[in-house]
């Protein structure tokens, strides 16, 4: 489902080039739940952004998603692939504060031009937030906001879910609830999940654990 070869990425700050990824290779099978561990600043989020087509690598031999080689794709083709195949859960939730919980969750379907009525309430019910459907995200607890973000990421049944430190801002109870939901959805729908974290308690969450250190992946 995910296959990358020799991904390199550099950042340039005030003329100084900083190399973040050094020839990363990765293969994740369809339906696999992979946990990518590593300390802050090791390049995890950069790799996820590249895999999620949210930025382009400085160089790579291949970045393939769901059987599509993404290197060289136009912006609109990358956007379409992101819209139809990928889902994201961020550490900072990234909900739209202007819209209600229901509208936030419905957004991916609306962007695809699909009707959202029943599916959204069913999804909210599943994450335990149907009573909060009409509220704005700012009026929910942090744990609830992350559950809304999870619901929004999964409402369109993406083939691949990228979760970037999804429990990073949560207390242990909320983190446990989000993780349980992730496992539940994975069990029921079988999407490919790549979860990145620096929290060692999440080691047992997935099928496989990878470690990243200084821009390189280790099994």
């Amino acid at each position: 489902m995910i296959s990358v070869r020799n991904v390199q990425h550099n950042y340039r700050h005030n003329g100084v080039v900083e190399s973040v990824l050094h020839g990363v290779n990765l293969a994740v099978a369809e339906g696999e739940f992979v946990v990518l561990m590593g300390p802050s600043g090791c390049g995890k989020t950069t790799l996820l952004n590249i895999l999620g087509l949210m930025m382009s690598p400085t160089s790579a031999d291949s970045v393939a998603l769901a059987g599509t080689e993404t290197l060289g794709l136009s912006d609109s083709a990358r956007t379409r692939l992101r819209r139809e195949t990928l889902g994201f859960v961020f550490q900072r939730f990234n909900l739209l504060p202007t819209m209600s919980v229901r509208s936030n969750v419905a957004l991916p379907l609306r962007i695809r031009g699909q009707h959202a009525d029943g599916a959204v309430d069913k999804m909210l019910d599943r994450v335990g937030l149907l009573p909060q459907a009409g509220k704005k995200p700012g009026r929910l607890s942090i744990g609830q906001q992350q559950r809304v973000a999870l619901a929004r990421a999964l409402i369109g049944r993406p083939a691949v879910l990228f979760a970037d430190e999804p429990t990073g801002n949560l207390d242990s109870a909320s983190a446990g609830a989000v993780l349980s939901l992730l496992r539940e959805f994975h069990r029921d729908w079988g999407q490919t999940i790549l979860l990145i974290t620096h929290n060692e308690h999440l080691v047992g969450a997935g099928d496989r654990v990878l470690t990243m250190r200084d821009g390189r992946l280790h099994d």
Partner: peptide, 16 residues
């Protein structure tokens, strides 16, 4: 800009 980033991550096109 940040909200625009969210919409882009959800697959809204440049034209949109």
């Amino acid at each position: 800009t940040r909200e625009i980033g969210i919409l882009k991550s959800l697959g809204v096109t440049r034209r949109g």
